[in-house]
Design a protein around this nucleic acid. Structure first.
Lengths: 235, 235
DNA sequence: TGCAAAAAGTGAGTTTTATCAATTTTTAAA
DNA sequence: TTTAAAAATTGATAAAACTCACTTTTTGCA
């Protein structure tokens, strides 16, 4: 059985991939006219909170964390964006500075589309505009879920929940029964779950002892998603 | 000095009032053609999470909490919407069910605009579409802030922060130096701050003892916003 | 206006989470 | 492969937050 039958994964995923796929050719060409592509190494910053947006980014391949730093420098991950998703459109559409920072969490291939091209395409294309409205509205639901999770769930429940979500994001050429390796540093995991690294490690140890998962070095392999769903205590 | 000089209140406010104000007359008329107006008493539910959206709502006067219930029935307030703001558009634009519930937290006058009228106006009006994109993108920034607050701030800091924000929302015919009465139940405050009622009461007592605020029955009057900003420990 | 119900407030004990100080393991570069 | 640096892990203690049981105050309605 797919995860969708047992867990509402949609409610934890932005789905911004669907914004650009199968856009009418005219719109797509206009948008991509001046795109430039670049490799970002693990840890490299794509844009910084508070700076002025110069365009949007498309993840051809890789994973990117969207995060905020508080004044003590503590990082909070808002969302992990995957291959096919776009970044940086919020700031341009809101006519504000970037509300968060973005950095690659693994080596990633990312295209840059200049602000003017994005806005011009948006002006021309009702489909793009409609899709952005749809995606942004869906994002509202996702963030409302995350917010509620942070406000109401324990560290153990939050980690269980995020592992379920991460497992989906780390699927590549997945076949049922195949193991999925979640390859994320404990620090990133901690800042995704909103706790200290030590607590993540302790709960992971607990999950290992109950047979929910296994670790190989930093990699996490989930053996029992159902138990994880139980641990998350999520409707 | 206005609050804007000392605290970034914009980052905590959706600003959805700006969506409908001064819309071109044609668009506005089309949108309002079949609107119906209704009074909601304190506590009355406007829509429920998980149900299908039949239209959008406009708050002519009053205040509305947007919230989610977990499976134990514990409530988490996502946002407090004020006079002039609109509600319920996320679900329609995302083509999903309502991601949260909405209920009046004081007697409110609210207009209902049918889904079809909203969508037709959106189709006709590039301005409406642009404004929604702008508002939704701004909301992303607000929710990212809230999420980070829940993940990183203590109960005391969160309560201080929310009191600063609530004080702005409860301003009516405000003149500098005038007292602002925040009239919200301790239960609602607790579910806004993401803690138990008892903790809200304890921190409020502490704030009273340090002269930050005063209470009159359930009403809270903030005397020293600057100290509150200090307590919130917010950049 | 009085009164019952609801809401607010208090205290004590327990659980959860954070913090600090280490040690061990893993990673990646030479 | 070796090895130094980075990352992960463990343990102990302190601080924060939660829960339960209860008392007091406020509210809104008869």
């Amino acid at each position: 059985m797919s995860i969708k039958g047992i867990f509402p994964i949609d409610k934890w995923d932005f789905k911004s991939e669907s914004v650009l796929t199968d856009l009418p050719l005219d719109d797509f060409d206009l948008l991509m006219a001046n795109k430039t592509e670049q490799v970002y190494k693990k840890g490299e910053i794509i844009f910084r909170e508070g700076s002025y947006p110069s365009g949007i980014f498309f993840i051809s391949d890789g994973k990117v964390k969207k995060y905020k730093l508080d004044k003590e420098g503590r990082e909070q991950i808002i969302y992990v964006a995957n291959t096919g998703e776009i970044l940086g459109y919020h700031a341009i559409l809101a006519e504000e500075r970037y509300p968060d920072s973005a950095a690659a969490i693994e080596e990633s291939m990312i295209s840059f589309i200049p602000r003017e091209d994005f806005l011009e395409t948006l002006h021309q294309s009702e489909i793009l505009s409609r899709r952005l409205l749809k995606t942004l509205s869906h994002e509202f639901a996702v963030l409302a879920n995350s917010l509620t999770m942070f406000a109401q769930k324990s560290v153990r429940e939050r980690l269980a929940l995020q592992l379920i979500v991460l497992r989906e994001k780390y699927k590549v050429n997945f076949q049922p029964g195949m193991p999925v390796e979640i390859n994320m540093s404990r620090d990133d995991l901690a800042s995704l779950v909103g706790t200290a690294r030590e607590n993540v490690v302790r709960v992971l140890t607990e999950f290992k002892e109950t047979g929910i998962l296994e670790t190989k070095g930093r990699k996490i392999i989930v053996h029992d998603v159902n138990k994880l769903i139980d641990m998350a205590n999520y409707k």
